[in-house]
């Protein structure tokens, strides 16, 4: 069941899901946070990343978004995060979607990793991909995402306590 309207508005207030001004009738609006992580190979040679294993630190480059905005080159991807800290209460499950206007520029906010489990607390990492042939510029704190909250069938599940809990910005891949 998707939570909307007053049910959502008062749920946000009751459980401090996110700041109250993020309420948007059927979802929670999320803004772009100030920090990003670019993932780039250090050389032009063919570079492998092995799934399930640590990625060398030199592949990552952390940046602060300037007032001029974040520039995402064509066919590139970055890690960013929500400006808001989000708390998903027990009994609810979050699904992140790209704002329609951004999606229409062929920019996606997630790489199909938009699920946020009950009990998660922290900033939400965005895997922003620019699928277009244009340079896309996004200003800091611009609304980029929508978080939908669904009610789960029971509250008797283990709450999220995984490796990405309590994130304060974008979180890099962590091996198992």
């Amino acid at each position: 069941m998707l939570i909307v309207g007053d049910n959502l508005k008062y749920l946000i207030k009751q459980y401090d899901v996110v700041s109250e001004d993020s309420f948007d009738n059927t979802s929670v609006s999320l803004r772009l946070g100030k920090t990003i992580i670019r993932m780039e190979p250090p050389t032009s040679e063919k570079t492998f990343i092995y799934y399930g294993e640590d990625i060398p630190e030199e592949f990552f480059k952390e940046e602060e978004i300037t007032q001029g905005g974040l520039i995402i080159p064509p066919k590139s991807c970055i890690l960013a995060s929500s400006y808001e800290k989000v708390n998903i209460p027990n009994g609810y499950f979050g699904l992140l979607q790209t704002k329609g206007s951004l999606a229409r520029l062929f920019v996606s906010l997630t790489c199909t990793d938009g699920q946020i489990e009950p009990g998660y607390s922290g900033n939400i990492t965005f895997e922003i991909c620019n699928h277009s042939n244009f340079y896309i510029k996004i200003k800091p704190k611009q609304f980029v995402g929508q978080l939908f909250l669904f009610k789960t069938s029971t509250k008797q599940v283990e709450l999220y306590a995984g490796k990405y809990q309590n994130a304060t910005g974008p979180t890099k891949h962590k091996s198992e």
């Binding site: 939570i3 007053d6 049910n7 959502l8 508005k9 008062y10 749920l11 207030k13 009751q14 459980y15 209460p89 009994g91 009610k151 509250k155």
Partner: peptide, 24 residues
């Protein structure tokens, strides 16, 4: 409704969240 989690003896809590999906 699960009464263990959805009841309160605090009137102000009841009044504040009476339209919430987790109203008390």
């Amino acid at each position: 409704i699960d009464l263990k989690q959805r009841t309160t003896t605090d009137w102000s809590k009841f009044d504040s969240y009476k339209k919430s999906m987790e109203s008390l």
